[in-house]
Nucleic acid binder design. Structure first.
Lengths: 245, 245
DNA sequence: GTGCGCACGTTACAGCTTGTTACTTAGCCG
DNA sequence: CGGCTAAGTAACAAGCTGTAACGTGCGCAC
């Protein structure tokens, strides 16, 4: 889903063509429609990312259509109308429109609003993969994934490097499960460079584990959390709790 | 689902207790069972991550039980048996066992196999979040997410730093969508440090964008792909195709 | 138990990456 | 055209990260 598909609903041919062409020029796919039936057909037939809906469609009211669409769809809707009084705008928002633009409008402005709405709605769905905003607790420690802060039971704050953070996250996500070096490396996006000699994947993970231990283990010589599974890899051998926020 | 729950099925009390205690000592929850009914009860009543199944259960054959379990369950099963001849092992695997251990066995070995099986099966479900193994194409360029390699239309290979790679990925995942600096920063796991003066978030992203441009744009002065949206952020203004492998 | 071998722990170091700062350049408004 | 703000760019220093080399301890065979 790369190029946004915008349904342009207006019964005035000229206006429809103007909008369609303009949107085309700016890298979107514009689908013209004049009646509610055509709208329905497009919605059933394929993906629609945004609807530009004229308020006055012959004898039908765009407001009604908008209201109906909103009952079973959550495609964003921008209302377009010659009626620009405040109470008329309010009506638009009342039936669930995401934005309300008065005719005549500046095409650039329309584009900006279209982008804004698309941006808003895409973000909330599959855009930039949602960040982990959880907090983890293990054995008195807390790790706040949102602010990347680890805090010891004593309250002392520990700052972890990027890699250390990543490692900790992988471990927290897989407590009690032995992870091989290869798995850890994969999760850390290490391009699996085979070591020069038969070591397959150097000792980078070992060193990284050592560094993390130095920071979170009371006695790195005798690790409590980040234990090694000889011949296998490493385990986070402690129960982990996750909270939201 | 942290601590593995292992169902130990054996009609010999001593053997059952031995195994149960041993498994307990090693951080698992062992659930004893002697008959097929008890097995069924456990499977219905709660989570079971692995079944250790003795082949000779009174007059019932563990093989039959295994076959029946396999019809509607995919809980991993390790067969345990005094019968160690090859054809007997084959029978075990034939009815769907994941492993087959001969009695008398070394407890440590049992543990190792248990872990191995758990590891195998857990991995295939929710373990370490699957890596992105796609290849992206845009305007003649290819980017292989698996090997972190970008290749120019000319065939020249470009090496990207970690951050640059991450930025490129974010952009590839959101083509044609303007991303604010804040969004990019969030996706890159930047701990949103507010800049010293009112810049809110320094110019780190700007610089990073510049560096990526220097590598992938023909003429960084006039970017084709990674365009800036003045007052907003940056867009990857080109169509992107994704292939698997 | 004793010795050997291998896997892991640890340290040091060099190279690269990365954020900052400061300055330059470009777009936008009147 | 002039002023303003945003973005591009270069240089730098700090810090991170992987490699290599060496130390240590566990497991296994005898």
């Amino acid at each position: 889903m790369t190029i946004p598909r915008i349904l342009v609903v207006d019964d005035d041919i000229e206006m429809r063509q103007m909008m369609t062409q303009f949107l085309h020029k700016h890298g979107t796919i514009a689908l013209p429609a004049a009646t509610e039936e055509e709208v329905a057909a497009h919605l059933e037939g394929g993906r629609v990312d945004l609807i530009l809906l004229d308020v006055m469609l012959g004898d039908e009211s765009g407001l009604d259509i908008c209201g109906r669409l909103r009952q079973d769809q959550d495609v964003p809707i921008i209302m377009v109308s010659a009626l620009s009084a405040d109470h008329q705008r309010m009506e638009g928002y009342a039936v669930g429109a995401d934005d309300y633009i008065a005719k005549p409008f500046n095409p650039e402005l329309l584009l900006a609003r279209v982008k804004a709405v698309l941006h808003r709605t895409r973000r909330s769905s599959s855009l930039v993969h949602r960040r982990n905003t959880k907090t983890f607790t293990f054995a008195g420690w807390t790790y706040d994934a949102k602010h990347n802060e680890a805090r010891a039971p004593s309250g002392v704050q520990v700052s972890l490097s990027r890699r250390e953070t990543a490692l900790l996250r992988v471990l927290l996500a897989n407590p009690h499960i032995p992870l091989t070096r290869e798995e850890i490396a994969a999760a850390l996006d290490v391009t699996g460079e085979a070591g020069p000699q038969g070591d397959g994947l150097g000792r980078a993970i070992d060193v990284l584990v050592g560094r993390l231990r130095a920071k979170i283990e009371v006695d790195p010589k005798h690790p409590l959390f980040l234990r090694t599974e000889r011949g296998v890899g490493y385990v986070f051998a402690v129960d982990v709790m996750e909270h939201d926020r």
